[in-house]
Amino acid sequence: MTNEMTYREAVRAAIAEAMTKDDRVFLMGEDVGRYGGCYAVSKGLLEQFGPERIIDTPLSESGFTGAGIGAALGGMRPIVELMTVNFSLLALDQILNGAATLRHMSGEQFNVPLVIRMATGAGRQLAAQHSHSLEGWYAHIPGIRVLAPATLEDARGMLWTALQDPDPVLIFENVMLYNRAGKIAEDAGAVDITRAAIRREGSHLSLITYGGSLWKTLGAADELSREGVEAEVIDLRSLRPLDEETFLASVRKTRRAVIVDEGWKSVSLAAEISSRIMENAFWDLDAPVERVCSAEVPIPYPKHLEDAAIPQVPAIVAAARATLGAAP
């Protein structure tokens, strides 16, 4: 049996399930209660669980993220929602200097079982302070796990598994996915958060991506298929740690790789993956690795410029053709 639901509803169902199953779980963030969440993810949860567990916070990202860390140290299992990745920069001190380091700094006496969710990515014409993809920055930091659910199943299932982790987990929800609807098994539940997934099998090249870019990459693979090129599409799912084994095995098989990453190209997650391919699969490659990333510009407001700034299907197809030695 399957249910029809949106990505937003899948995240909401995951939160509701976690709160029902574990009294220690609570949700805290800006406008998560009375407003229903900036992206309406937590709509209705206040009525269901009450203000003690669905906590509207003041606009104090560092304060309430730090409070989430403290509450986790104190025996709770907080879910902190940061409205967007850009706002998370106001909490970066707590995330990096606190959550990510406490286990190490304390000689493993303390750990921080905290989940932080936030919206990321461009596409809604929200301009240069609401649209960036900084998950690659967070993936730089030892001591935190970074997840990017791209599918309904992952939106529904990653949260519970993340809450079982004794250490901090950041979940990045691409804003363009919230309205995405589809069928999902009625009994959908917790999923693994350690492995990348092969979303489409193919033998001619590997397209490696995550989050909001997954669907564009699958679109590009369909277009390539019409030309007789069968692309394998890897959804990284976990950005830290990276499931190197899965994408390297794919690259060794197809001998060609294109990385699609909504972060800026310079010093990006795509750069990291490319490096790992060079280090581990260089002799298996038949062509240089290609990258499709965001243009080196803050995300512009006008639709045509915003679209041009981030990875799109034609650019992915062109990069794929380039690795195959075809004219772009």
């Binding site: 309430f64 730090g66 409070a67 403290g70 104190g74």
Partner: peptide, 9 residues
Amino acid sequence: PLAVGLGLA
């Protein structure tokens, strides 16, 4: 903020 969170817990 850490102390606030410990108090909250």
